[in-house]
Computed example of a mutant assay.
Amino acid sequence: MTSLLPGTAVTVQVPATTANLGPGFDTLGLALSIYDTLTVQVTDSPGVHVAVTGVGAGVVPTDATNLVARAIAAAFDAFGQPMPGLALTAHNTIPHGRGLGSSGAAIVSGVVAAQALLEGLVDSSDEQLLAVATAMEGHPDNVAPALFGGLTIAWVGAGGPQHKKLLVHRGVSPLVLVPEHTMSTELARSLQPQSVPHEDAIFNVSRSTLLIAALIQSPELLLDATEDRLHQSYRASAMPETDRLIALLRAAGHAAVVSGAGPSILVLGSDPGERLSAAQLVTDQADMVWQALLPAVDIRGATVISHTVPTAR
């Protein structure tokens, strides 16, 4: 049985993520230095109470149906522990519905908070955390970099979800261009065909392997390495302005792709100055307002930034 004392609290920080990176559909993900912060405190009273500030305030649920609360409950269940009463305070800065892994970050923050609360009471591994998070998210390409940071290759093997973390070349400079409108991941996936031409599959295999080399060793190859024929063209009709701007950016020599399911645009610059010129091009050519974010690659992933346990009287 859980013996958590009321007042026990943890605070975790989780990065945004961008998945696919062009050709690495449902496989590659990158953690970015845009963060959601979650504090979870054990209470005397049963149930879950959620307070949200920042992105999603007044919109997302504030009871046990909240995604973070459901992730905590799933982790407690996976670890074989009953969940105590909890008060959650979430401060969100990751945009919702824009292809930056906000749901993955919510799930990871809950799973990591649960692990931290249960420290010393149960043993858990990185593999278990990834398994719980993937079961909720449906695929590991966003939750893996949110958990572990850096560039991750994620797959599902005989033993469940797996990942390999790689360090990104210091010359790689991400730019994220975020529109005001959102995009449903479910809608984006519904536009994906069940099969693709053989030559397109071969094309993406070559580009995704090249992309690994470009990101960890040779950033000058990023433009060629981010070409894709598996998913972006099929989803273009649902986000025409994203598609138009990506075409303009790539024609100007910038490695631009759809960030996750979109509609945000990810530009992988080979030096810091390149992303400034890419942002200016969008400012000059866009038909609507796009917010330019200049994050670094996050190398730590989800972190516990405070953990307090009151002394029993």
Score class of each variant (00 low, 15 high):
residue 2 T to I: 15
residue 2 T to C: 15
residue 4 L to P: 12
residue 5 L to M: 10
residue 8 T to F: 09
residue 10 V to R: 06
residue 11 T to M: 05
residue 15 P to H: 11
residue 16 A to F: 13
residue 17 T to Y: 10
residue 20 N to A: 12
residue 28 L to H: 09
residue 29 G to F: 13
residue 29 G to N: 11
residue 29 G to Y: 11
residue 34 I to D: 01
residue 36 D to W: 05
residue 38 L to A: 10
residue 40 V to E: 03
residue 41 Q to T: 15
residue 47 G to F: 15
residue 48 V to H: 01
residue 49 H to K: 15
residue 51 A to D: 10
residue 51 A to V: 14
residue 52 V to L: 15
residue 54 G to C: 02
residue 55 V to Q: 14
residue 59 V to K: 05
residue 65 T to M: 06
residue 67 L to C: 07
residue 68 V to T: 15
residue 69 A to T: 12
residue 69 A to L: 10
residue 77 D to Y: 00
residue 80 G to F: 05
residue 86 L to R: 08
residue 88 L to W: 03
residue 89 T to S: 12
residue 91 H to K: 13
residue 99 G to N: 07
residue 101 G to C: 09
residue 104 G to R: 08
residue 105 A to Y: 01
residue 105 A to H: 04
residue 111 V to N: 03
residue 114 A to V: 14
residue 114 A to T: 13
residue 115 Q to S: 13
residue 117 L to K: 09
residue 120 G to I: 09
residue 122 V to F: 04
residue 122 V to W: 02
residue 122 V to I: 12
residue 125 S to E: 04
residue 127 E to P: 00
residue 129 L to G: 11
residue 133 A to D: 02
residue 139 H to P: 02
residue 144 A to H: 08
residue 149 G to Y: 06
residue 151 L to W: 03
residue 161 P to R: 02
residue 162 Q to M: 14
residue 166 L to C: 06
residue 166 L to A: 07
residue 167 L to S: 15
residue 169 H to M: 10
residue 170 R to S: 14
residue 170 R to K: 10
residue 179 P to T: 14
residue 181 H to C: 13
residue 182 T to A: 14
residue 184 S to G: 14
residue 185 T to E: 04
residue 187 L to F: 14
residue 189 R to A: 11
residue 190 S to Y: 07
residue 195 S to I: 00
residue 201 A to P: 00
residue 201 A to S: 14
residue 213 A to V: 10
residue 215 L to W: 12
residue 216 I to F: 01
residue 219 P to D: 08
residue 223 L to D: 05
residue 225 A to T: 09
residue 227 E to P: 03
residue 228 D to S: 07
residue 230 L to E: 01
residue 232 Q to T: 09
residue 234 Y to M: 00
residue 236 A to W: 03
residue 236 A to N: 09
residue 238 A to Q: 07
residue 239 M to D: 01
residue 242 T to I: 02
residue 243 D to V: 00
residue 243 D to R: 05
residue 244 R to V: 00
residue 246 I to R: 09
residue 251 A to C: 01
residue 256 A to T: 04
residue 258 V to A: 04
residue 258 V to R: 04
residue 261 A to M: 08
residue 266 L to M: 13
residue 267 V to C: 12
residue 267 V to A: 13
residue 269 G to I: 08
residue 271 D to L: 00
residue 276 L to G: 00
residue 284 D to Y: 07
residue 287 D to F: 02
residue 292 A to T: 05
residue 292 A to Y: 00
residue 292 A to R: 03
residue 295 P to F: 06
residue 298 D to K: 05
residue 300 R to W: 05
residue 303 T to R: 12
residue 308 T to V: 11
residue 311 T to W: 03
residue 311 T to I: 11
